[in-house]
Amino acid sequence: VVLGNKVISHLMLTEPAPLAANQDDSTNDSSLRTLLTLCDLLNRELLVLIGWAKQIPGFSGLSLVDQMSLLQSGWMEALLVGVAWRSQGAPREELVFAGNLRLDEAQCRATGLADLYEALRHLTAKYEAMKLSPEEVVTLKAMALANSDADPVDCPDSVQQFQDGLHEALQDLEATRRDQNRAGRILMSLPLLRQTADRAVQNFLRLHRGRRVALHKLLLEMLDAK
């Protein structure tokens, strides 16, 4: 696919197709309906993400404990890369969670997701300004997971190798660009992603506790791990 880098070709090939939202119809409250629809989508995205992670070169070689730790700390970052990428150029600055689930600022506020909206628009604007390529996006997503700073690490050397493999892939990818600062700029966008994901997790936990929104088991388990 790209420059002969096998890792990135593999990431491009295994990138999951976007999911569609299943409209919730269990309540007449439209903001609650939106929230439940979003939570159902996130739960299914998580399932797909776990399957995707297993296919990242090097991931399956990690101990089961490290695989779990990386996913538990990095899942929201990996999911938000996709949302921010899809939301680029969206009319009315919507967040595009799925092709059929686009929420503008007012809808997010009504749903209790004002904080998530603000954080994700900031991230989206950053990615938009960077003009990321699809290859860079899949690499960024894998790096976010590999770099999730899970603690404690079971086999530090294996995790380091996993990270190094992805870093090399990024360097390979950027080697042909004229812009020598490109790889560094992509790495420097990771803190904002971490910060955005933290705010997203806090927002969902607040809604779960405050509005007593029932969450799917997998989503709840992953939020709890935070």
């Binding site: 739960n43 089961l64 779990m68 088991k217 388990e221 992953m222 791990a225």
Partner: peptide, 20 residues
Amino acid sequence: KEKHKILHQLLQNSTSPVDL
């Protein structure tokens, strides 16, 4: 492990159905 059993099951590629 007990607390994170769904993730654990999914990573182990368990053939038993996972209750999501």
